[in-house]
């Protein structure tokens, strides 16, 4: 079995460990509730985390099998980034407003390498780079790096979004009242807030 088959074969176990690691980034009293993820409305963080990790893992497996180093062009990375970012969005969007530093918020991605190494037997047995390459580990390694970069992108977008919302709210609160009172004529509220839509 090559790495893709191994990942597919061990998907459940990998996901379970990955989820557990991610949930453990919360204080234990909280993690106890979040890992119980039964009803997604009673436990939005736990269920969104699980769902998002599951989608990302699926993507990683398919990307690992498709990754072609000859075709490792910038535009291809960019195209993939969007797909990965969308899979990561629910988990990153949540962590962007919680008590995490930027590195803590995205650290879970890198952990996937450690988890896979601990589960996949072939990786246990060898440290020889050539064996690893033949096994397809390098492709997996690169894919996880791409996911980590995408996670950081999305984290930044969420943070920028938060600050933009904060600014927009302040403008909206004061500006529309001024506008109605005829104190502002040169720019409409819509024009001022236009930056949010671009």
């Amino acid at each position: 079995m090559d790495i893709t088959q191994q990942l597919e074969h061990n998907r459940e176990e990998i996901l379970k460990k990955w989820f557990e690691f991610t949930i453990k980034s919360y204080p234990e009293d909280t993690a106890r509730f979040f890992r119980k993820a039964k009803n997604k409305f009673d436990n939005p963080v736990g269920s969104a985390t699980l769902q998002s990790l599951e989608n990302t893992l699926k993507l990683i497996i398919s990307m690992t099998s498709e990754l072609d180093f000859q075709d490792y062009a910038v535009n291809k990375i960019d195209a993939n980034q969007n797909v990965i970012e969308n899979a990561l969005d629910p988990i990153i969007r949540i962590r962007a407003v919680q008590n995490f530093t930027a590195s803590q918020a995205v650290a879970f991605v890198f952990e996937l390498k450690t988890i896979v190494k601990s589960i996949v037997k072939e990786l246990h047995d060898t440290n020889d780079p050539l064996d690893r390459e033949e096994f397809g580990y390098i492709a997996f390694d690169h894919t996880v790096d791409l996911v980590a970069l995408a996670a950081f992108n999305r984290f930044m977008k969420c943070r920028e979004n938060i600050f933009l919302l904060k600014a927009t709210e302040a403008k909206r609160r004061i500006h529309s009242a001024f506008e109605r009172a005829g104190l502002v004529t040169e720019l409409t509220e819509e024009e001022l807030l236009g930056s949010n839509k671009s």
Binding site: Y26, P27, D29, T30, F33, F34, D42, N43, P44, V45, V97, Q98, N99
Partner: peptide
């Protein structure tokens, strides 16, 4: 009450459990 608070569910901070 612990996991019924939106602030606990959203922030993950145990001190936001209503009981705590």
């Amino acid at each position: 009450c612990a996991d019924k608070c939106h602030f606990f569910l959203g922030t993950g901070d145990p001190k936001n459990m209503p009981v705590l």
